[in-house]
């Protein structure tokens, strides 16, 4: 296998495995926020603001994987 094929496989693995963790974490975060809103509906504003920021933090992990995959596909120093 040449470096191009290997880097494509690497990009696929990076995105597919790297998105498992953030997906589970976002699910847990949203479930916890829903639970909290159900218990105390009056704090929904603060909760959803914190939830959005937290979700963005978690999502960054998946975005890192995507950026690594794109680096492998488009800016790979070993395939040119």
């Amino acid at each position: 296998m040449d470096a191009k094929v290997i880097s494509i496989i690497g990009a696929v693995i990076a995105v597919s495995i790297g998105s498992i963790g953030p997906a589970l974490a976002e699910g847990r975060a949203v479930a916890a926020a829903m639970d909290a809103i159900a218990r105390q509906p009056e704090t929904a504003g603060t909760l959803s603001r914190t939830l959005f920021v937290g979700l963005a933090m978690i999502e960054t992990m998946a975005i890192y994987c995507l950026v690594i995959a794109l680096l492998l596909l488009f800016a790979n120093p070993y395939t040119r």
Binding site: A56, E59, T60, I63, Y64, L66, V67, L70
Partner: peptide, 16 residues
């Protein structure tokens, strides 16, 4: 760095 990559990654992946 993560501030930069977060914004870039989200907007760019949408366009992509």
């Amino acid at each position: 760095f993560s501030l930069m990559v977060r914004l870039f990654g989200n907007v760019m992946s949408g366009e992509f």
